[in-house]
Design a protein around this nucleic acid. Sequence first.
DNA 1: CGGACGATTTAGATCGATCTAAAGGAGGCA
DNA 2: TGCCTCCTTTAGATCGATCTAAATCGTCCG
Lengths: 338, 338
Amino acid sequence: MTLADVAAHAGVSRATASLVLRESPLVAEQTRQRVLASVEALGYVYNRGAASLRMRRTNTIGLVISGLANPFFADLTEGVEEELRPAGYVVLLANTFDDPAHQDMLIRSMMEHQIDGLLIVAAVDSDAGFVTPLRNNGVPHVMTTRRIRGVHASYVGPDDDAGARLATQHLLDHGARELAYFGGPEHGVARIDRVAAMAALLAENGLEPEPSWTVPSRVSSSEGYAMARKLLEHGPPPEAVICHSDAIAFGLMRALRDVGVEIGTGCRVIGYDDVEHAQAWSPSLTSVSVAARTMGRRAARMLMERIEAPGSSPEESLVLRPSLVVRESCGCRPSSAH
Amino acid sequence: MTLADVAAHAGVSRATASLVLRESPLVAEQTRQRVLASVEALGYVYNRGAASLRMRRTNTIGLVISGLANPFFADLTEGVEEELRPAGYVVLLANTFDDPAHQDMLIRSMMEHQIDGLLIVAAVDSDAGFVTPLRNNGVPHVMTTRRIRGVHASYVGPDDDAGARLATQHLLDHGARELAYFGGPEHGVARIDRVAAMAALLAENGLEPEPSWTVPSRVSSSEGYAMARKLLEHGPPPEAVICHSDAIAFGLMRALRDVGVEIGTGCRVIGYDDVEHAQAWSPSLTSVSVAARTMGRRAARMLMERIEAPGSSPEESLVLRPSLVVRESCGCRPSSAH
DNA sequence: CGGACGATTTAGATCGATCTAAAGGAGGCA
DNA sequence: TGCCTCCTTTAGATCGATCTAAATCGTCCG
């Protein structure tokens, strides 16, 4: 069932039938109706693959992400899809599970599928070279969420400096003096930037981060729990802790509860990402919100603009300012329910 | 940069170069090396789109899902990807947000992209006709997680009858007499089946579900919270509640805490899906586990088998038996930490 | 020495669309 | 009538791979 069949059925040429499908104004109304009727009658399905070959454009964009199980990335993915779909693009998805070698393979696979552009949340320990195949083949690409040292590419991500300062300032306002930054991938740019921002702001107040609790970790709730339990064996927690992610914060809070520390008074906790469960937790979790869905949409939009721009557009970088969603875990009163 | 260029560079024909790429044993070792060297030298990237046109196979499968923000589906998606990727398939993703009209569009879009097969978690209120385009065009497809009344198609999903019985029996064993099934889409097959199973088991014990709390809802934490708050205004909760999802259970538990009911004693709560946060909650949530990731893998495997099977294979149905993960919210002692 | 045979290689058609350049047809005007 | 538009339609090339059927080559055998 091809366009040739439709054309034959309608008594026109392939070229005309093709023009009808593409809603060209060249074709006469009467012919148009006839062709459309044939399409309907034969149950013809457009073959985008064939068209792509000729047009050198697939209307497909790749999304390479470190893992959907992380709700932050699931949200981001939804945002990407929401933005691309109405523009006629379709998303090819791939999970790297934060493995750089796997990531290289996936990028290659996407290129073989002739994606029009690539969105990528780079694996934490990515080698800076992962973008070179993209650059060499002129595949438009946008990195998001994570910045990789040494990689020059367009980027959409959160302002980690601002986020860390927001949280730190709030804790200082509560009168806390001992602050720590808990968890996160050791060499990740996000952790490094946030710790630096926190330290800078503390320094302005004659303080410094509590070293024994300012330690890296993997980004999961159970990891946060295990690490917190271990640290709690050696003494009480600091007055206030900013966690690298909400998941880690949940783990920390569980550990604190185990040893009888009251959250919000005995230890003030702030999370990062503001995932859906943050408000449902008890006590509800104060968190730095970076609006994953919005970030996905913005990154997708930037990519589309770059795809549609003629020639090569200059590298650009969009930084979104996070906000602090204040709830109970930092020691503030519960706001009106819901 | 095409295969013709590679062939020219290596001094062979396109046909030979093509054979090399496909690792055909026909071509002489020496020639093979030469071609491979040219591929390397020119930085050639295989054009799968062109190959697909000829081979009538894209190595792409579609995944149409109701929403990634639901961690259950995010897990399922990871499972699907894990299974398909090593087999050389790539996933085209689409979110329906449970809108049947949107779903029809997405299925059509996937067909235009010539997917080799389709995995679908149907929108709750899907019309039974959504599979007919697939059937008419001979696109292999497998439904998962949700069963739609009137749709005949291969299916991989949980045994809702067994799941509901598991939870119900556990609560009966605790001595509870007033049981309710709380939340879930009103006309969803899952809710209907589970309520029926619960009612049947209760009937064997001379009981029946508590009607005022056995009510439908949308599947979100805030929805569960709001509904529970409203019901609590009219009186105390039943002795035990099975929730349609963990998210709803979280909402319910928050509401119970608000009014001072102790979870596990004042009201026993069981969730459904066993999402990652279930164990991290406090009290930890007893939940019926249906292993979303495994289900995704099984569904993907079934689809691949159907794609690779010559001719049309008979409709098949794989039902996975859930298990009850016992934690604290049902009133059991906390098991050893972690 | 001619022919058969196995091992390699290849020319040319093909998949299903789009694009280019030109053809066909109706009407207007001198 | 003949010529020039303008509006529509179309034949044939093209995208980059694979497939079919046949060509080429060296060797071995009678």
